[in-house]
């Protein structure tokens, strides 16, 4: 009599999972790497980092990546951009302002997050337009 089966698609599942991962990050549960940015520690999950960034993919994909539990990222112009990028990875929301966009752009370039780089370029370009 027609339909043989049903697939129930939970449309908000991906955002529910990401929200829980963000809560785990904020509470330090199962975080397995510390990113040092200008001496400031940022705790995170390697699995989320490797899923979002070509740079972290290169670092963590091999067997050697298992033993990496502290990773220093560059200070200087990029430093202020790393925390917003980490928030983006865990929330899908990228906070940009004219003041922060250049450092987020620099950090996203370093972390090989091409789509964020493009979004930063579009934001900066739009902010120049009247």
């Amino acid at each position: 009599d027609g339909a043989l089966g049903y697939v129930r698609e939970f449309t908000r599942h991906s955002s529910d999972v990401l929200g829980n991962l963000n809560e785990l990050r904020l509470r330090g549960i199962l975080t397995d790497v510390t990113l040092l940015v200008g001496g400031q520690p940022l705790r995170a999950h390697k699995a989320v980092l490797i899923a979002c960034s070509g740079f972290f993919y290169s670092i963590f994909r091999g067997r050697a990546g298992v033993g990496v539990d502290v990773l220093s990222l560059p200070g200087g112009p990029e430093a202020g951009g790393f925390a917003p990028l980490l928030d983006f990875m865990y929330t899908s929301r990228l906070r940009l302002s004219p003041a922060t966009a250049p450092s987020v752009l620099a950090a996203a370039t370093y972390l090989q997050m091409e789509h964020v780089v493009q979004a930063c370029h579009r934001f900066i370009q739009a902010s120049y337009e009247p």
Binding site: G2, A3, L4, G5, Y6, V7, R8, E9, F10, T11, R12, H13, D16, V17, G19, N20, E23, L24, L26, R27
Partner: peptide
């Protein structure tokens, strides 16, 4: 007749919510 599968959308929450840190 393996192709007859209906997809039903579930708009509600899919998993438990980890309590927010106080």
């Amino acid at each position: 007749h393996e192709g007859l599968v209906a997809t039903v959308k579930e708009a509600g929450r899919s998993i438990h919510e980890i309590p927010r840190e106080e």
